[in-house]
Design a protein around this nucleic acid. Sequence first.
DNA 1: CGTCTTCTTGAGCCACTTCAAGGTAAGTGG
DNA 2: CCACTTACCTTGAAGTGGCTCAAGAAGACG
Lengths: 226, 226
Amino acid sequence: MLESAIPRDGLNLKVSARHTVPALHTLFNSVELAAAVMPFGRNAEIYGEDEPADNVYEVVRGAVRTYCVLCDGRRQVQAFYFPGDVFGLEFGPRHSCSAEAIDRSQVAIVKRSLLLGAAERDLTVAQQLWRATAIELARAQGHSLLLIKSAHERVAAFLLDMAERLDADGVIDLPMSRQDIADNLGLTIETVSRTLSSLEDVAAISLPAARHIVLRNRSALRRINA
Amino acid sequence: MLESAIPRDGLNLKVSARHTVPALHTLFNSVELAAAVMPFGRNAEIYGEDEPADNVYEVVRGAVRTYCVLCDGRRQVQAFYFPGDVFGLEFGPRHSCSAEAIDRSQVAIVKRSLLLGAAERDLTVAQQLWRATAIELARAQGHSLLLIKSAHERVAAFLLDMAERLDADGVIDLPMSRQDIADNLGLTIETVSRTLSSLEDVAAISLPAARHIVLRNRSALRRINA
DNA sequence: CGTCTTCTTGAGCCACTTCAAGGTAAGTGG
DNA sequence: CCACTTACCTTGAAGTGGCTCAAGAAGACG
């Protein structure tokens, strides 16, 4: 139903079979919903930190990053979202971080008030809201665990995560820049680049192009990940 | 109601006025509940990682830490909980990390199934479950933001957080060891110790005893925290 | 083809870690 | 009450992983 509403363009990113967060149509399977699908250009802001959290979003095509900026300009990318992933769901009234399209993307948008209303009438919707938040919590906890690891471990973990979410037979097509990866892993772009090169040196991956990574040895990556 | 069920002993830790997570009696204000209060000794395990998450807990007196251990033994303390704080609430069937009493503590315990049942009958309980998870999510996001900062920033942030939660007029009585703090902040105990000493040198704090910290200049700490 | 952005690589540096020693405080048994 | 033990904390000195600064290579795009 969501699918049929989506205009196609040339982006052609794959839709992940495994959802990080229950898809909106799961959230809505017993409710009539009005989901608008909106296009966003490369680096376009979807919402900003502290803005009212009036909507909930699902990536239909493309990729989205959420991030916080410290007062001195350091940026932390909290998460990446791909087709099927839900983001921007808050309990409180305001967004805790900003969201931007990484690439040209299509995003389904539904009014939060509609969801909350549905949750009041339908128990399973209420449960899905809880579930979506719980999955985000698990992600955030995993992210903080990541940040105590070494650069090699962080990059290996990142690659394994991306492989699971974007995989086409061991080949990863990254939509995001090295800067995005670095800000997600709490490293510098130089360290990310060097670490990828060193993983290529030990034949764990190969790098036919900067954003095109082939996993050559997943168990080696898992071993590095600790 | 919970209060009256609590046997007193000699610990005499203060009960924080400000709750990190809605207290169980908030969660239960429209439900009859059977909350047992159990004592735990210093370093006693309350639950272990991957154990079935059959209960939800509230610190009544004392202090609790939750933590994960990596395969090579590195430990990350995810959070500290003080009187009034709820912990161990999971959406999934198993605990994502272990919980231990830091000190001799009293912990109120309720069956998860009771809560879930109540949530099915009572919309506000369902909302409180969601809310508690959302607050944990905010905490986890804050924690990962902390971990990209410098040692000085992390320690300053830790002190400000503890001051807010344990404060008795600018004096902090820490229940946890330097190792706990280090594992929470992603640093070594030596770095934590050195950083505290250096904060004392610049007159931001004073250290009459290792676990007794006096905030001398909060705005300096806030400035350091970035 | 030139320009701009992004990515890679190198060299030196610094914040934090590691390793090591000593100090302090609380508990325990004599 | 005091020696002894043990756990915890602090401080120093040296090492190192990741950062900073800098230059060049590789794509992307008009």
